[in-house]
């Protein structure tokens, strides 16, 4: 497969895969809308850690944009990719802190202190984190390849694919966060 065709094909694969993931979350969030319109729905105040994680995941995207610019100039972007990886790890830590804060509020995933609203909150944020872990694996592979100088200004498909996916995770999180903030 020639390089141009490979670029187009892999990007399409990713875009369609992301459409698929979007529908998965659309299913979950539409379930929240249906359920929240019925009786017994309890509001939950969102932990401040989710605000921090929002900032961090956007920062990760910014580093990937910079790494793309650098590789286009023919330089090695490994440092910036590594910073994205760090952002991803911090994002995960903040998600855990967010869940701890929910526990402190007495909002549990299951059991006596749980409600459909709190269960949905955990499931949606957890499902997003699973996808972020997939993104982190991708960022790590891109980083090691970059360290080994596998990318050039002519061929940096791996960085492009990772960037697209990370930006997607970014936008997805902003949507989910805004949705949860508004509905829950």
């Amino acid at each position: 497969m020639d390089l141009n065709l490979k670029n187009t094909t892999y990007k399409q694969l990713l875009w369609i895969g992301m459409a698929s993931i979007t529908l998965f979350f659309a299913g979950l969030t539409s379930a929240v809308i249906v359920r929240s319109s019925e009786s017994g729905w309890q509001d939950i105040s969102m932990p401040r850690y989710f605000w921090y994680s929002t900032f961090v995941i956007i920062l990760g995207s910014a580093f990937l944009i910079m790494s793309k610019k650098i590789v286009r100039r023919g330089k090695n972007p490994a440092d910036y990719i590594f910073l994205t990886f760090v952002c991803g790890v911090i994002f995960a830590i903040f998600q855990f802190k967010g869940w701890s804060a929910l526990v402190d509020q007495g909002k549990f995933f299951v059991g006596e202190g749980s409600s459909p609203a709190s269960s949905f909150l955990y499931v949606i944020t957890f499902a997003h984190l699973i996808h972020v872990i997939g993104g982190l694996i991708s960022v790590f592979i891109t980083y090691t390849k970059s360290v080994n100088s596998k990318y050039s200004k002519e061929n940096y498909l791996g960085i492009e694919l990772t960037s697209i996916y990370w930006h997607f995770l970014d936008i997805l999180w902003i949507y989910l966060f805004a949705f949860l903030l508004y509905i829950i």
């Binding site: 698929s20 993931i21 529908l23 998965f24 979350f25 299913g27 979950l28 379930a31």
Partner: peptide
């Protein structure tokens, strides 16, 4: 587009 919804 539809199987992911069954997954959720």
């Amino acid at each position: 587009l539809s199987f992911p919804v069954l997954l959720s």
